[in-house]
Each structure stands twice: as C-alpha cells, then as structure tokens.
Nucleic acid binder design. Structure first.
Lengths: 230, 230
DNA sequence: ACAAAAGTGTTAATCTTACACCCATGG
DNA sequence: CCATGGGTGTAAGATTAACACTTTTGT
C-alpha cells in the first residue's frame, strides 16, 4: 500500500458539443484568466470536491464557468500522465457532453460566460495543457457515435426540420450524404415522429415538415444497439 | 481553485481476460489478504505512484499481484463515486487487458500469484468493493468489441486452429454461430494467413489447418474500422 | 417564371442467411 | 467401420447504393 505519499489531484473536464445551422457542430471553450496558459483557450473543468460524484463535479464546473447545463453527459476518457500540468500531477476524467440547439443560443446571454465561446470543430484555436488530445478523443467519439447511437437528437431542438438532422451528419462526417437514402434509413429506425407543423420558410425553398423525436423508440434502440451507416 | 483540501487517492484496476479451450473466456481475479473485504475476490489493481503513468501503474500492479504481463491494454472506465471504498475516497481508472492463451497457462506456475485465479465469465464469484460493476462494464466492452475489432487474436496464440477462434466467439456471444458463414466472413477480412501446419489431432476428428494472424492487415483494419457481425 | 430547398421511387448489385454433405483422423 | 470434428458451396432473401425528377415556396 503505497498511498501515503501520493499527492495526485483529481479533476474533471468536459468537452461540450453543440449544433447550430450556421456553424454546424461546435465545441464550447473557455479562455483562461490565470497562468499557466493565461489567455489560452481550454476545455472547461476543474477539481473534484471531496463529497461530490464525478458527474456532479462536471455539471457544477460547467455551470460555474459557462452557465450551461447539458442534457447528455457520458464519460470520455481519463488523462493522467505525469507532466500534463506543469504545476503538479493531475488526473483528469474527461467527459463528453451534448447540448440542445436552444442552449447553444443562450450562451451569449450568460454573465458567467464572458470568457466562454463556441468554436466550429474545424476552426479550433490552440489549446492549453493536453486539451488538444482530449478534444481529439472527443471528436473521434462523436464521429463514431453517430454510427451506432441516435445521438443527433441530443443536439437538436425538440421539434426540427429533417434537413437539420442531415446537416448535422454532414458537418460531423465532413462529406456529403445522399438525402434520399439518408431519410429512408432514418425513418426506418422509427425514432422520428412526423408532426403536423411546418417550418416557416426562411425566405427560400419549400417549407419542411417538422419532426419530433420518439423517446420510447430511442431508448429501445439504445438498449438493443443499432447500426446506422451513412 | 478548491484543490487544497482534496484528499482523493488515485488507483488503477485491470480486468484481464484470457482464453482457454476448456474454459472459454475467463477473467483474472485475486483474493484479498487484508480487510476490508478480506478473502473476497477482487480485480487486481492498486495505487498509482507519483511518477509513473497510469498504464505503467497497471502493468506494475499486474506483475506484482499476478505475475502476468499483458499484451493488450486499453483504458476502460473511471470509477470515482464517493463511498465506493469504505476507508477513503478513491478514484480508480479501470483498464481492460487481454493475454495470450500461452500466458493463461503460466499463471499457476507464478509464485507471486498464489492468490490469483481464472474464473470463467459465467462462473464469477462475489467481488469486493464495486468490482462487480467494473467487471460488468468490461464484459460489455469485450462483447461489443468483437463486433468491430479483431481482438480475438490478442487472446489466442500466434498460430491457432480456426475452431479456437470460433469457440472464442461462441463463448463471448453465449450462443452458437454458423461455422460456415463465420469462417467465410472471417477469411474475407483478410487477417488470417493459412500456414502449412496442421494441429495434431487430440484423439478425435480431422486435424485442422493452423492459421496465423496477419498483423499488417489487422492494423489497417483497426485504423479503417470494421464491422464484423456474427 | 425562376431560384432554392424539400420530397419522393426504382433498379442493380451486394451482402447475408439458411442449410447439408463429404473428408480425414483415431480408436 | 464408426464416431468425431474439420472443411466446403449454393440459392433465396434482404439490404444497400446509385441515381433524377417533381413540388412548394419567395422573389
């Protein structure tokens, strides 16, 4: 038992993904106020308190640093190599979070979040510490995940036009997809319910039907597993 | 910055899987010598030293506690809820490891490993702490993994009869599979090279060709991703 | 009437599944 | 010669991939 002289600190970090029609899939970053890496961009996070669970710590830190509350959170990976923080040894358990499109908009309004900002996943700034690595793992994860979990819905509003879902996939995959095959496949999963509403057109083109997402079917698929190739 | 009164300790644990023709897929457990959970079975692991990486810590602990060195190691999940250890708060980064069939045999010989033992994944004893949960996540992982990574090879010897690979899948999936379709599919991946050797028959049946595993093709598939449904 | 985006079907090719018989060996 | 496990092919069905024209709206 060699625990007595261990002085490792435990932190959590969260890679938060959001989606907007304009910018596609984006990541939430904060600008550091203090050294080391002062003024660098970084993934939000902080030390775990003695009495709280890891997940509670993530939600608290996100609230404190960005004013955002996520609706999907899963553990991503733990980073603990000596030297990843120049001050002391820190093991950080990184989380992967998704927020609804509506939350995406709210960020600017939050006072806590003066130094928080969304960055498109193809326009990322240099990051503090090993946060580049963490973000890399997170992007890999979200790209893999859309193939076997219908997570897209965690990024969209409750009611959305089909094209938003398609754009989201295009943004993540980084390539065009066949709209016809995509929609047939997605509808075959049965997780989309058609509503009777239509999007008000934004000046151009035919207005699209709005869809709602069928939570029951979604949870069933999550359990059974699915395979969604596009 | 609330790090000053943090007294969380950092540990690693490893769920080690092995394969033998007789017992199928098994997990390596150790019997605890001291309280709490004295004499209970547990996953091998221990505290991380100040200067070593997490992975080094895992390999060291495995060597110390079981005398085994693994040839595949990946991070599994981190467990850090307050109360998972009755003595103090411990965050444990759990790893997922695979050993070759040949190492499987060697365990009994090791002196360090008096209290280490293999248990078939369907014959697990009650476990200390939250190790039941950890093992659950690990078994879920290995079952999922054979569908998209050719990890079976990490469990088999360098040269092996096809039927070993099949038995391994049967043992993990917990159901019979069609030998003809399985072999066609596996060969189509191109990761198997036929050798000119034959297994000496063990008393019954036609001797089987031995296969070797094509590392180059394997690594290519790991990168590209694969989808292996059986 | 035109530009822009939404909606929708068919066909060929591929992949998957189900299924049964012969072969080589040891006893 | 028989019991045991190894080895192999085919046909029907399901899935996927490729592909283009029509509809609705705003201007």
């Amino acid at each position: 038992m060699t625990s007595f002289d261990q002085h490792i600190k435990v932190a959590v970090d969260a890679v938060v993904f959001g989606y907007s029609k304009q910018e596609g899939v984006s990541v939430l970053l904060i600008q550091r106020k203090y050294p080391p890496f002062q003024n660098s961009w970084a993934i939000p996070g902080g030390f775990v308190l003695e009495h709280e669970s890891l997940e509670e710590a993530v939600r608290r830190e996100l609230q404190e640093e960005t004013g955002i509350s996520v609706n999907y959170l899963e553990q991503l990976y733990s980073f603990g190599n000596p030297g990843r923080d120049p001050r002391q040894r820190i093991v950080s358990i990184a989380y992967f979070a998704l927020v609804k499109s509506s939350q995406f908009q709210q960020l600017k309004a939050s006072t806590d979040a003066e130094h928080a900002q969304w960055f498109g996943i193809n326009e990322l700034p240099p990051l503090a510490f090993d946060h580049q690595d963490i973000l890399g793992v997170a992007i890999e994860r979200i790209r893999a995940k859309i193939r076997y979990q219908p997570i897209g819905f965690e990024l969209l509003d409750k009611i959305f036009p089909f094209s938003d879902l398609e754009h989201l996939y295009v943004s993540l995959l980084g390539r065009e997809i066949d709209r016809r095959n995509f929609s047939r496949k997605m509808l075959a999963l049965g997780i989309l319910d058609e509503t009777k509403e239509y999007a008000k057109s934004e000046g151009k083109g035919r207005p699209s039907k709005l869809f709602r997402f069928n939570e029951q079917r979604y949870q069933q698929l999550e359990k059974e597993g699915m395979n969604f190739e596009v």
